[in-house]
Amino acid sequence: MLALVRGRPIVHPTETRLRALLLSGMDGDAVAYRTFLAELTRYLRGYLRRRIPQLADDVEDLVQEILLAVHNGRHTYRPDEPLTAWIHAIARYKLMDFFRARSRRESLHEPIDDYLDIFAAADDEPSAARRDIGKLLEQLPDKQRLPILHVKLQGLSVAETAQLTGLSESAVKVGVHRGLKALAARIRGLA
């Protein structure tokens, strides 16, 4: 931690200790590096618990992700820069990734408690709709059908779909757009 007093930097003892351990570890001292990771783990737990107290179960997973990022990126650390600022930047990025992934997952889940009456009667409409969508999708070329299937129906990301299908990410986006447009035109023609 770096603070300024009368325009001069005051270095926090945690900064000094962690920095010395990391630099020793980068010079080949395995014991110092293990100690660095252990002390950084405690530091990160406190940092994350203060930021996401309502998500205490996720703290350990995030700590591990940040430690892995620090380990994998340790060669990018510049010794003339504050270590904790570098670690905080990594932690913030991992925290933002966590929130993005969590919001994506949460948007897929709607609490069922509000809709218990949905089980009052059986309905085969979803299976009929699934069959109809399947028939409509079969009429599309693969470069439109596969992106719609993976991105819109299975919930994969554009990047995951591109990797799975061998298409570029932009081709996946174009395929989804054109495919949905073609499906809409066919549905309008059926109505």
Rank of each mutant, 00 (worst) to 15 (best):
M1V: 07
L2A: 07
L2S: 11
P9Y: 02
H12N: 13
P13H: 02
T14P: 04
E15F: 01
E15T: 03
E15P: 05
T16F: 09
T16G: 10
R17D: 13
L18E: 09
L18Y: 00
A20I: 06
L22G: 11
G25K: 01
D27A: 15
G28Q: 03
D29G: 07
V31Y: 09
F36P: 12
A38Q: 13
E39C: 02
T41Y: 02
R42T: 14
R42K: 07
Y43S: 09
R49M: 09
L55N: 09
A56H: 09
D57E: 15
D61S: 11
L62S: 05
L62Y: 04
V63L: 05
E65H: 06
I66C: 09
L67Y: 01
L67G: 08
A69H: 03
V70H: 00
V70E: 10
I90C: 06
I90A: 06
K94C: 05
L95I: 07
F99V: 11
F99M: 05
A101R: 08
R104I: 15
E106I: 05
E106H: 06
H109F: 13
H109S: 11
E110W: 02
I118F: 14
I118M: 12
A122P: 12
A122M: 11
S127G: 11
S127V: 13
R130W: 04
R131Q: 14
D132W: 13
I133S: 07
L136A: 15
L136S: 09
L137R: 00
Q139V: 10
L140Y: 04
K143Y: 15
K143R: 12
Q144N: 10
R145Y: 03
L146W: 12
L146C: 05
P147H: 00
V151L: 00
V151N: 02
K152I: 13
Q154L: 13
G155F: 01
G155T: 08
S157M: 06
A159F: 00
E160H: 00
A162W: 01
Q163S: 13
G166F: 01
S170Y: 05
G175E: 06
G175V: 01
G179V: 06
G179W: 00
A182P: 05
L183D: 08
L183N: 09
A184T: 09
G189K: 10
